[in-house]
């Protein structure tokens, strides 16, 4: 209210009193002007948009959509390839593992064979050496027994002689042999 009274007071008496009192929007004398320029503006905008701007933007959007679709398809294809490559890699890995296991088993068998052979050989050698040693031990033992009998007979004869007796060689030998068997 204050607005209207002040506005009318200020411009009171001025040449454009009629329009200042009301809204410029209701000043019908300017309508033909506004309508004319509005129609010009709308026609210009319509032609700029429909002839140049909208077809161009539409084609850019369509092109982008196409590019994105193609790129997605290519990405899908590459993904399939990657999956295939991964599968091939895994297959290769599995077969390589199997191969390796086979080689390990063969090597183990070879080694086992060599080992067995070497063990058998060593056993045989050990057995040969042991029997030889036993033989020698037996020989040595027999030799030692003979020597002991001899020494015992001699010692007995000497003892008998030293004690002043006349040693009967035969009797002494028989006695020593009996004692040794004892």
């Amino acid at each position: 209210m204050a607005t209207e009274t002040t506005a009318s007071e200020v411009t009171h008496g001025a040449a454009e009193a009629a329009e200042a009192a009301g809204m410029p929007q209701l000043d019908f004398s300017t309508f033909p002007n506004q309508i004319f320029w509005l129609l010009v503006t709308l026609v210009v905008i319509y032609f700029v948009l429909s002839r140049v701007a909208l077809p161009r933007i539409g084609s850019v959007l369509a092109e982008r959509k196409g590019t994105i679709t193609n790129d997605l398809a290519a990405a899908e294809e590459l993904k399939q390839k990657a999956v295939g490559a991964e599968k091939a890699y895994n297959d290769a890995l599995v077969s390589a593992r199997a191969e390796a296991a086979k080689i390990v088993a063969a090597a183990k068998a070879d080694i086992q064979k060599d080992l067995d052979k070497a063990l058998a050989k060593a056993d045989a050698e050990i057995a040969a050496k042991a029997s030889e040693s036993e033989k020698r031990i037996a020989e040595i033992r027999a030799g030692a027994m003979d020597a002991v009998t001899e020494v015992a007979k001699d010692t007995a004869k000497e003892l008998v002689a030293a004690l002043g007796g006349k040693a009967d060689a035969r009797a002494v030998t028989a006695a020593v042999t009996a004692a040794l068997k004892g």
Partner: peptide, 23 residues
């Protein structure tokens, strides 16, 4: 009806803005 007014100017500027953005 044909006089260039401030309405003409600002409608023309609207056209200019539209041409700049869309063209």
């Amino acid at each position: 009806w044909y006089t260039p007014t401030n309405a003409t100017l600002w409608m023309a500027l609207a056209v200019v803005a539209i041409v700049v953005i869309f063209v």
